[in-house]
Amino acid sequence: MAVVFERPKALCDVPLHYCPGCTHGIVHRLVAEVIDEMGIEGETVGVCPVGCSVFAYDYFNCDMIEAPHGRAPAVATGVKRSNPDKFVFTYQGDGDLAAIGTAETVHVGARGENIVVIFINNTIYGMTGGQMAPTTLIGQVTQTTPFGRDSQLAGNPIRVCEMMATLSGTALAQRVAVDTVPHIRETKKAIRKAFENQKEKRGLSIVEVLSTCPTNWGLSPIDAIKRLQDEMIPYYPLGVYKDITAEGGNK
C-alpha cells in the first residue's frame, strides 16, 4: 500500500502530552517537516522554553537544550555563536518570549542573531494553569484577570511582530495562524522561509503563530478555533511585518 501520510523523521515516535485541541502539535509537525525537507536534522540544535512546550526536547529528533524561562534566545545565541554552521531555533510561548524574556527577545533582534524563533501566541500562560500573558486580550478572563483584563490595571497586549519589525537585525517577522488548512500551509511556508534565512545568514527570523489553548480558555477545540478567528486575528493581524528578501516587503 502506498504511504500517503507519515510522521516527519525529525519528530520522535512518542505520544505528545498536549491537551486535546491544542495547536502546539501542529506547529511541532510543521517545524519537523521543514527540517526534514531541508535535510538538516543532523545539523540542527533546538532550544525549548519553560511553558507547555518545555518537553519539546523529547519530541524533536535533533539535539535539544532546555533553557530557563525566557532565556531561550540567549541560550540559542550561545549555541549559534560557537557553532555558526549549525541551524539553531527556539520554540517559545508568549509568557516566555514577551514577558520574562522580553530583553532576550529584543536583543536577538537588535543583534541580528542568525537564528529562528518560533513564537506560540495563545494569549495565556498555559503550563501554569491559565494566568494573564503579555498577549492576553483586553477583557479576556484568566486566573489572574478574573474580571477580564483591564488595561488601566494590567496594561495592554503586546504585538510582538510589529515590535520586532522595528529592529534592524530582524530579517523576517511574520504572523501566521493554524486555524485553517490554508493558514497552516502559510505557516509552514513562513517557517521554511525562516530556516532559509538562517541558511543564507540573513539575521533573526521570528514566526509568530496564533494558537489555541482550549483547556485554559475553557472552550471546546472548535470554539477555541472560532475565538482565534473572531477575537485574536482582529487584534493580531496576520501578515508579514518585515521581510528583507521581499521587494519593499514591509507591512
Partner: peptide, 21 residues
C-alpha cells in the same frame, strides 16, 4: 567569541548555550 550581552542573565545563558555544545 566575545559578546557583550544585554544583561548578566543573558550572558550566563549564552554560556549555557555555548557550553551545552
Amino acid at each position: 567569541v566575545f559578546l557583550q550581552a544585554e544583561s548578566e542573565i543573558a550572558a550566563v545563558n549564552m554560556v549555557l548555550g555555548a557550553a551545552s555544545t
